[in-house]
């Protein structure tokens, strides 16, 4: 099973190392990890795609939560969330093929963002299957380079993952 886990983390140096180190140390198989700052500059958000059973998912969530710099962890169910990734694809294109590639890009609702004499760079967003399908067809032209961001995801509806400063001050329930 593939799971999408999203985590709010402190935006401070070393956090990515801690998270990445945890995955390798505990033997979790990560398909992708995407990270960027949130609307609050002190907080970053990670989207992690992980392969494994429910038990693996539970351990991963708990282990992530245990890291001091990790503020909140949520498991996003596919049916209750939207997910996208961004890919940039450099494709070898002879001038004669330009019309063909433009058509292909249109069908996938991508964009050509750079065009050279013998190549184009295509920007594509979508879920992984869409990107995969595009790459499959682009192969006929000759793919020179691909870069993918990995999945980013968000729950549908009003639910948000913002971190609210809790009323209860930390330390109050300490023995």
């Amino acid at each position: 099973m593939r799971h999408t886990v999203t985590a709010l983390v402190e935006n401070s140096p070393g956090v990515l190392t801690r998270v990445a180190g945890l995955f390798s140390r505990r033997g979790f198989n990560i398909d992708s990890l995407a990270v960027g700052v949130t609307e609050d500059p002190r907080i970053s958000r990670m989207t992690i795609v992980v392969e494994g059973s429910e038990a693996t998912l539970e351990q991963l969530t708990k282990q992530l939560n245990k890291l001091i710099n990790v503020i909140k962890v949520t498991d996003l169910k596919d049916s209750e969330s939207v997910a996208r990734e961004l890919a940039l694809v450099k494709i070898a294109v002879e001038p004669a093929q330009r019309a063909q590639i433009t058509q292909l890009v249109d069908i996938f609702r991508g964009k050509i963002i750079d065009m050279g004499r013998q190549s184009v760079i295509v920007e594509l967003t979508g879920d992984e299957t869409k990107v995969d399908a595009f790459l499959n067809l682009a192969r006929d032209f000759g793919i020179k380079e691909v870069v993918r961001t990995g999945r980013i995801a968000m729950a549908r509806g009003m639910k948000s993952m913002e971190y609210q400063k809790e009323e209860k001050q930390n330390g109050q329930n300490i023995l």
Binding site: E10, I68, N170, G171, N173, I174
Partner: peptide, 13 residues
């Protein structure tokens, strides 16, 4: 006098 660690709140009860 206190810490502010949003990611660290052990459960006691």
């Amino acid at each position: 006098s206190r810490v502010d660690l949003p990611g660290y709140k052990p459960t006691y009860r």
